[in-house]
Design a protein around this nucleic acid. Structure first.
Length: 988
DNA sequence: GCATCATCTTA
DNA sequence: GTAAGATGATGCG
């Protein structure tokens, strides 16, 4: 029989039950004889790829005959990937058939609720079968057996015969087949799962998988499981009792619902277990040796050609003439994939999964031409100290117990003075049983020796996200900060900020992202060494040899990035200037601001929480009365159903997910008592949960100060963002909201001082557009929104009504946001054509602004980026996107980016300028909120310092920028407004 | 337990 | 119409 003779199997009688007692168990079988150096036996779960790719890939993939081809493509890509990766000699693709199996005979509910297969999918199946055969891969379908069972059987036989096995599937049920020599690989997502992967994912061993599935059940397959036992309980029970038999023996000891139900449903367990068990001794009537790939390049080439032509897979067709097409039995073919983006992502994931795998020819991607050292004795440390002290610059990286610097303790330090060589000094690792922990050098001794080097401004410090390391070192009384910006001309560099300045959009700026993007290297992830989720341990619980690899890699990669970015910056002096004169100095100031924190009034916040809570409860009660029943007022879904279905309110609109929209914009148009109650309820619960409760939780227990964390390499425009907590969105618009602001105070003898740029983005618009009317209004010091209304309506500023000013304000903001008539109409609640008329009138009066819009858009198309006032390039990758909506979104972002981005540049300059003149004993900079800086200052020095700050901020373009070599002739004045008071509300 | 949605807060 | 982050509810596995 030939390998592809897939119709030759005798059907399996669905009424003959497998003998579960004698069935071999793949997870526990002996694997000592398996030769891991041979290519693996590949078993593909064809049915999985069929369904997965059909639902995941767009149905718009069709040939000219209207045949949907997404599942064909998806499955083909999975197969080609496997062949390229493993160069297998033995492989089989298994499919389910429509006929019933023993599971259907056992349980009426088994897969009973599966909807009928879509016709668009059914049509693709014959093509997929033909394709598999034409690729020379054995195809297996057996009446009365599921693909799982064929795979289970073949996996057992293959391992028994000395092969290791890769099962290509995304079905978690198959995890019961995993052992030392059998792994799962989902070729669609790139995810690989070995034994450790099962433990990581579910907290149990592969051999416990059947019991796990039996307890949990599977609603999509119609397997019930034990009610009340989900993933978590099943895991806990299995960890305690090992298996279900043992659980039942000790069922009296199992408390609560789990124990009760286990007893009550004990009779169902055997059947559910059998439904969940993959058969491993099917009568397949075929020996595994027959499942060889047909490697004759000419065998099926004509069939393939015909298929690809009919399907209109042009790239695949062309690649048939390429000598390395995988169908020719050679695993190095060119990629021929329709979804380059999705594919690139899954490739990256595959690359990642390769790291941890040790099976077969899956390569360990660690490079070996490198020297990574663990420093565990005095003389090695002496040598390192010598090396660092005499280096012009070096990479430093701290390893700690937490990503939050305020909770972190130092665990070790890594260094690099050149690429491919790195040192790790473990200091406080404490993993029980790790023999190396006793050899660690003393932390304080090491730090004392390093302090003069780390504080030496003449030795450049290089790091990835140095602000973090600076925070950590400052906890140990080491001041790294001076080295970051006091010597802007040395080699000091923050690779995260360098990447951000060079191109903020091309990748995120974490070290893993940078290594992947710029060095084509997949780093050891933190999760690889410390686990993830609830099971993650802190770094001091990682074994020193593993930790050392991780830490050395970090330092090594950082050095390599430093080399690469240094070259890029040498070619672009403005980028170099942005890094050294703007971002790195800003980082140092942010470090101080974060360390300062801002004082809050805890008792006041607690009092507010209590008050809000009482009002919330009263509102809930009223809502239940109006509704006639209790429901969750905080659930948009339940509220929508109550309002529009049960209470019959008209005007309900649905969101894209099919539920009613209950956003503020919709509700405020409805006249109904429940709406008023809801809006008030939402306002108060927002304030309570997001602000009064949250701030109290994060404030330092001893000092009552709140320390936010600023992210400097995140936004697409150059703005900062603030997290944990976000102090850039503290309420201000409503009176109740402002109560929160009143909780931010200055200590005794000091006041809060706030300084903000007035209308900075509109001033930038005036500058960039050069528009005469706009420039004139700012130069005359007019109320800009009133001036706009007067100009557009052709009347005097004094005659402008409140509504006219409000509309003008909306259009001014709209301009900054790349406005459309549609958007303006929605904002002003007018018709689209009215909005369009208004916009037309505006552009007639402000032609320069119209030109700015056109020119900025054009620049984005021409260069792929726009520039801010300091020449920061902000890339606009979606400007040529094939989706019209996405493309238009990118156009609006491009129009906004120079304005928002330039404002971000200016406030960073302002922070640098202010920091330089601020008397540190009398004032501290605390917060930055995009166009505002918040300080606490000695009460008796407020006027003086306020003037100092105002001057520094207003003069950034005429003084600070010029000193640093940026010469900008700004078209309008920069105006700063300051105020001060006991709290942030009074200061605003 | 983790991701996504809907909502609301800021500049 | 731009740029963010946090929360509770909900859905998935």
């Amino acid at each position: 029989m030939t390998a592809n003779d897939h119709n030759s199997h005798s059907p399996i009688n669905p009424n003959t039950l497998p003998n579960f007692a004698t069935m071999p168990n793949v997870a526990t079988m002996d694997t000592t004889h398996v030769d891991k150096n041979q290519p693996p036996f590949i078993l593909v779960d064809g049915s999985y790829y069929l369904f997965r790719t059909y639902h995941a890939l767009p149905k718009t993939m069709q040939n000219s005959q209207g045949l949907v081809t997404n599942a064909i493509r998806g499955t083909l890509n999975a197969l080609l990937k496997l062949m390229r990766r493993y160069h297998p000699t033995h492989m089989a693709v298994c499919f389910d058939t429509k006929s019933p199996t023993f599971r259907h005979a056992m349980s009426e509910e088994y897969k009973a609720n599966r909807p009928k297969m879509d016709i668009e999918l059914a049509e693709q199946i014959p093509y997929i079968h033909r394709l598999v055969t034409a690729l020379g891969i054995p195809l297996l379908r057996i009446e009365g057996a599921e693909a799982d069972d064929i795979i289970g059987t073949l996996a057992y036989r293959a391992v028994a015969e000395g092969h290791h096995v890769v099962i290509s599937t995304g079905d978690k049920d198959m995890m019961q087949l995993i052992n030392d020599c059998v792994i799962l690989e989902d070729s669609f997502t790139g995810k690989m799962t070995d034994s450790a992967g099962v433990v990581e994912k579910f907290g149990i061993n592969p051999e416990q998988m059947i019991d796990f599935l039996t307890l949990m059940g599977d609603s999509s397959d119609g397997i019930k499981g034990v009610p009340g036992i989900g993933k978590k309980t099943a895991k806990d029970l299995l960890n305690e009792y090992g298996n279900i038999d043992n659980m039942l023996k000790n069922v009296a000891n199992i408390k609560g619902r789990a124990g009760k139900n286990l007893l009550e449903y004990a009779d169902d367990i055997p059947m559910n277990a059998q439904l969940a068990t993959i058969v491993t001794d099917l009568e397949v009537g075929q020996d595994w040796q027959d499942l060889k790939i047909n490697t004759d390049p000419c065998a099926h080439i004509n069939e393939l050609r015909e298929l690809y032509s009919e399907l209109e897979f042009r790239n695949e067709l062309a690649s048939l003439d390429h000598p390395n097409h995988p169908a020719n039995g050679n695993g190095h073919g060119t990629q021929s994939v329709a979804h380059s983006q999705a594919d690139a992502e899954s490739q990256a994931q595959i690359a990642k999964s390769l790291q941890s795998s040790t099976i077969g020819d899956i390569t360990d991607s660690k490079i070996h031409d490198r020297a990574w050292h663990t420093i565990l004795d005095e003389s090695a440390f002496d040598n390192l100290v010598q090396l660092l002290a005499s280096a012009p610059h070096f990479v430093i990286d701290t390893e700690t117990t937490s990503v939050y610097w305020r909770q972190a303790e130092l665990v070790g330090l890594s260094f690099a003075v050149q690429a491919h060589e790195a040192y790790y000094i473990p200091l406080t690792h404490a993993l029980e049983g790790d023999e190396l922990i006793a050899k660690q050098l003393d932390r304080d001794t090491v730090l004392a020796r390093l302090k003069p080097i780390l504080e030496n401004p003449n030795i450049g410090k290089i790091g990835q996200h140095l602000k973090y390391d600076a925070h950590i070192l400052s906890l140990y009384d080491i001041n790294l900060l001076g080295n970051i910006h006091d010597k802007p001309n040395n080699w000091a560099m923050d690779t995260m900020l360098a990447s951000y300045v060079i191109n903020a959009a091309i990748t995120r700026h974490g070290m893993d992202d940078l290594a992947r993007h710029y060095l084509q290297t997949q780093t050891i992830s933190f999760e690889d060494v410390a686990g993830k989720g609830a099971k993650q341990v802190s770094f001091d619980q990682v074994a020193i040899d593993i930790a050392s690899d991780y830490a050395c890699e970090d330092a090594d990669i950082t050095y390599q990035l430093f080399d690469l970015f240094s070259k890029k910056l040498a070619d672009d002096t403005n980028n170099a200037k942005l890094l050294h004169e703007l971002e790195i100095p800003t980082a140092e100031i942010l470090c101080q601001m974060e360390a300062n924190g801002i004082l809050i009034r805890r008792p006041f916040l607690n009092e507010l929480s209590k008050r809000f809570d009482e009002e919330i409860i009263a509102l809930e009660k009223r809502a239940y009365e109006v509704a006639g029943e209790e429901f969750n007022l905080g659930s948009p879904k339940q509220l929508g159903e109550m309002l529009f279905d049960k209470l019959g309110v008209v005007g309900g609109k649905k969101t894209k997910t099919g539920q009613y929209s209950t956003g503020e914009a919709v509700l405020s148009k409805i006249d109904h008592p429940l709406v008023d109650i809801t809006l008030e309820y939402r306002g108060l619960s927002k304030l309570k949960s997001t602000y009064t409760d949250a701030l109290d939780n994060v404030a330092d227990a001893k000092t009552d100060r709140v320390h936010t964390s600023y992210h400097q390499a995140l936004t697409s425009t150059g703005r900062l963002s603030s997290t944990d907590p976000n102090l850039q969105n503290i309420p201000i618009r409503t009176a109740t909201g402002r109560l929160i602001r009143q909780a931010f105070i200055a200590p005794e003898g000091r006041v809060i001082l706030a300084a903000d740029y007035s209308q900075i983005e509109l001033r930038l618009m005036a500058h960039f557009s050069g528009d005469k009317n706009l420039t004139h209004a700012f130069n005359e010091g007019l109320d800009i929104h009133a001036a706009t209304a007067a100009e557009v309506l052709g009347k005097e500023v004094a005659e402008v009504t409140a509504t006219e000013r409000r509309n003008a304000k909306a259009i001014n903001f709209g301009l900054l946001y790349g406005m459309s008539a549609f958007g303006l109409a929605k904002q002003l609640q007018m018709s689209r054509s009215e909005a369009q008329d208004y916009i037309d009138m505006y552009f007639e009066r402000y032609p320069g602004v119209k030109d700015y819009m056109i020119n900025t858009r054009a620049s984005a198309y021409e260069h792929g980026y726009i520039e801010t006032i300091l020449g920061r390039k902000l890339y606009t990758p979606d400007i040529n996107h094939s989706n019209r909506m996405v493309k238009q979104g990118a156009e609006r972002a491009a129009i906004n980016a120079p304005l928002q981005g330039s404002a971000a540049d200016l406030i960073k300059l302002a922070m640098i300028a202010v920091d330089k003149v601020l008397p540190k004993e009398q004032a501290k900079m605390l917060l930055q909120v995009h166009d505002e800086l918040v300080f606490e200052v000695d009460a008796d020095k407020v006027d003086e310092i306020s003037q100092l700050i105002t001057n520094a901020m207003q003069d950034v373009l005429t003084a600070t920028a010029v000193e640093k070599g940026w010469n900008v002739n700004f078209a309008v004045p920069l105006l700063v407004e300051t105020d001060s008071g006991q709290n942030w509300d009074e200061a605003h």
